[in-house]
Simulated scan of single mutants.
Amino acid sequence: MERTTERESHYKNLELQSVKEILENINREDQTVPLAVAKALPQIEALATITTERMKHGGRLFYIGAGTSGRLGVVDASECPPTFGVPFDMVVGLIAGGDGAIRKAVEFAEDNTELAWHNLLEYNVTEKDVVVGIAASGTTPYVIGGLKAANNHNMVTGCIVCNSGSPVAAVAQYPVEVVTGPEFLTGSTRMKAGTAQKLVLNMLSTSVMIQLGKVKGNKMVDMQLSNDKLIDRGTHMVMDETGLAEAEAATLLKKYGSVRAAVDNYKN
């Protein structure tokens, strides 16, 4: 397969460009990413729909990836509990080489075709669960091996890749292909490809959580109240829903521990 993410950059002699030129050119390339994501919306919809269906029946969502792709999965998974109030193991990000690879690359971990399945087994995965492989190149052995094993165990599989016709997409039941083209810095898929993957992950997890009832109106009513900023945000949500003054809303929120519980108990 031809990997467009590895094609030569459209920009030459980067070291001769001024800072202004570098920033303008990176920004010019970045503006193409949402347009590429838009072309994949039907694929994202299909993956989000089946993921919601499985999670409504007790399934979980697992991301598997290596390097930048793995880190993006870990970030999205780790933000679901504080944002939507779900258990920490409802959305799980796994990275080749383990959690240490989040900060420091682990050599050749991504080349192990059996490692992802071993990582998944640590979470006692079942056929209710969904496994989404994230790989900009679409060729990462860690991801391919994990998706193949998940398929063999009757799990739903999806992927987020940035090349068309890739081995990862061929294995995934619900592939999402966002073709972002050559990077500003040749082959540096942490740039446009990484941005595209982040956008798709935002869309996937947010749409699924909305469908699971974790949002009311446009508010994160189940968010964890883990700092003063979020407590203040939650207080104002309670004020908006109940008409209470700030002090009373804050007391109610503190008593019940979440915006949803505070509002429901006030109305009942």
Rank of each mutant, 00 (worst) to 15 (best):
T5W: 11
T5S: 12
R7V: 06
E8A: 13
S9R: 03
S9V: 05
L16M: 11
V19R: 12
E29R: 02
V33A: 07
L35R: 14
A38C: 13
K39V: 13
L41N: 13
I44H: 02
A48R: 04
G58I: 11
G59C: 14
A66D: 02
R71T: 03
V74S: 09
V74A: 14
P82I: 01
F84C: 04
M90L: 11
M90S: 06
V92M: 00
V92E: 00
G93A: 14
G97R: 11
D99H: 09
G100F: 14
A105P: 09
E107P: 12
D111C: 09
L115M: 15
N119G: 05
Y123M: 02
V131E: 02
A135T: 15
S137V: 15
S137E: 13
Y142F: 15
I144S: 10
H153Q: 15
C159R: 06
I160T: 12
V161R: 12
S166E: 12
A172R: 14
P175A: 14
L185D: 04
L185T: 08
G194N: 08
V200S: 10
L201S: 11
V208K: 01
L212V: 03
G213V: 05
G217S: 04
M223C: 00
D228V: 11
M239F: 02
D240H: 01
E248I: 05
T251S: 12
L252Q: 01
K255V: 05
Y256R: 00
Y266T: 02
